[in-house]
């Protein structure tokens, strides 16, 4: 059991940030708590509970972009049509089988991203080109990919921002695991934007333990500038298999993971094409 001496529940973001800054390394932010209860580092003696700081909620802006507050639980996200409709259902794919209801009722989007371990959400967010808004001494917005590459030290993640796609667009996500409750061996998220029936932008992201989410440029190039035909999908899936250097562990060989990545990419792209048919 963690030895905690101080517990704060600040009424707003400014106070939360000040408490975090002033405590130095001895404090942790507390969101849902599902990760922190199990993994509170021994040097931590202060918890800063964000539940009263006003960071929950999902908003769709007039331009079609989506803002997700850091303290939004997965259940509330799954119940928000603005989120589950975005990009044709990408977040619905991610969340429908995420943990269990008991977990989704507690765990938050911000705690999940900040925890930055094997994730079914981060690949989807990367495919959706998400930005994070982070409070430190100032407030800054930056791409999630940059945020994950360079953790900003003490910070409060306040919200995620998913930009509106420039035209018809859809995404899809799939995961492979031994059982629904196990960590994914590997997961795949894809987003495609069309312009006049031709793929304008494609993002293909593969996540696995150790690599939260990696884009596959060759697979994206195989799709770009052409209609998303079965042969283009096939080329993209083959580019994923060729371009991926997955891990090998007790659960699966690298070859098996490479195979899964190809299958997942093909399935996601087929789903994306079906969804694009609905929006076009």
């Amino acid at each position: 059991m963690p030895t905690i001496a101080h517990y704060h529940r600040p009424p707003d973001l400014d106070t939360a940030w000040q408490l975090l800054r002033d405590a130095g390394g001895s404090a942790r932010l507390l969101a849902g708590g599902s990760d922190l209860v199990l993994r509170c580092p021994p040097e931590v003696d202060t918890l800063i509970d964000l539940s009263a700081a006003g960071l929950a909620g999902v908003t769709r802006r007039a331009d079609g972009s989506l803002t997700i507050g850091a303290m939004t639980t997965f259940s509330d996200l799954l119940a928000a049509p603005a989120a589950t409709d975005h990009l044709g259902g990408l977040l619905h794919d991610v969340l429908a089988d995420f943990g269990s209801v008991l977990h989704r009722n507690q765990a938050t989007v911000g705690g999940h991203v900040a925890r930055a371990r094997m994730s079914d959400l981060i690949p989807g967010l990367l495919a959706a080109d998400a930005e994070v808004v982070v409070r430190t001494e100032d407030t800054r917005t930056r791409p999630l990919a940059d945020h994950l590459a360079a953790p900003p030290g003490a910070h409060v993640l306040t919200e995620l921002h998913l930009p509106a796609p420039p035209g018809p667009a859809a995404g899809a996500f799939t995961r492979f695991s031994r059982s629904a409750f196990d960590h994914a061996l590997l997961n795949v998220a894809v987003v495609v934007h069309l312009d006049a029936g031709v793929v304008h932008t494609a993002r293909v992201v593969i996540g696995e333990t150790g690599v939260l989410g990696r884009r596959l440029p060759d697979a994206e190039a195989a799709l770009t500038g052409k209609p998303p035909t079965p042969s283009a999908i096939d080329a993209a899936a083959r580019a994923v298999v060729a371009g991926l250097d997955p891990r090998q562990d007790a659960l699966a060989s690298a070859d098996y993971r490479r195979h899964l990545a190809g299958v997942g990419t093909r399935r996601c792209l087929q789903q994306v094409v079906a969804r694009l048919g609905e929006v076009a």
Binding site: V37, S75, L102, H103
Partner: peptide, 27 residues
Amino acid sequence: RGDCGSCAVRLDGRAVTSCLLFAAQAD
């Protein structure tokens, strides 16, 4: 550790695993 659900309670109506919450969160 949040796997079995036998500790589930309702917190403000939502069912959650009480083993993964700090007691202070119920305040």
